[in-house]
Design a protein around this nucleic acid. Structure first.
Lengths: 98, 98
DNA sequence: TAAGTGTTGACATTAGTTGTCAAAGATAAA
DNA sequence: TTTATCTTTGACAACTAATGTCAACACTTA
């Protein structure tokens, strides 16, 4: 399940745009946007941002969802996934501090 | 920097195996193992496990390092990286519970 | 020299992602 | 029903990234 897709579909509908029109606005093929909204293809950060602008919506939470889905994908079915997450957190904090 | 590579190189040297011999044992090309140890190519989980067996070493921490490096790679330079990590953690905990 | 070590780069192969397109199916209005 | 508009689907091409293969290089030691 892709929360990002569901949310962006809701936003599009709220904005009153058809798939075709939204796709044209952000310069991608209709088919791709359709698949992205339904989770059949991955969004890119770039497209999320362009769509957010189109829908006049703050992209922060969408990007967080997008990134977290990537991470979950890497770690799904991994016995040590949570431990790896903790280590990753330390590394990122350390990097930020420098 | 790849901690996994450094550790596996140390383990190999401690075991007294040359690159060539270790590579033959785990059935990969010498060039690849050389590059993996130096972080020029990515390890796979499979190779880490095979090498750990060869060196008679518990792979758990190596795998955790390996996975965390993947995650860090996904989130490096991301403004909301830490937030995404938190969300990912919740999702994984939720998945585990079910 | 000769044998062993690790490194490098060029290249082919493979796998995965992304883009393009046409057609089909669904829905609603005329 | 016809027409228009919409979304979904699948086949395919194009592109990119990952992986494997190989030969040669430089260095050290016997």
């Amino acid at each position: 399940m892709s929360t990002v897709g569901i949310k962006l579909r809701e936003l599009r509908e709220k904005t009153g745009l058809s798939l075709r029109k939204a796709a044209v606005q952000v310069d991608i093929d209709v088919a791709i946007l359709s698949k992205m909204e339904r989770g059949e293809r991955k969004f890119t950060k770039e497209i999320i941002i362009r769509l957010s602008e189109l829908y006049n919506f703050n992209p922060e939470n969408l990007i967080i969802d997008f990134l977290s889905e990537k991470v979950v994908y890497d770690l799904k079915d991994e016995e040590f996934g949570l431990k790896a997450l903790k280590v990753a957190e330390q590394k990122i904090k350390y990097n930020k501090a420098n």
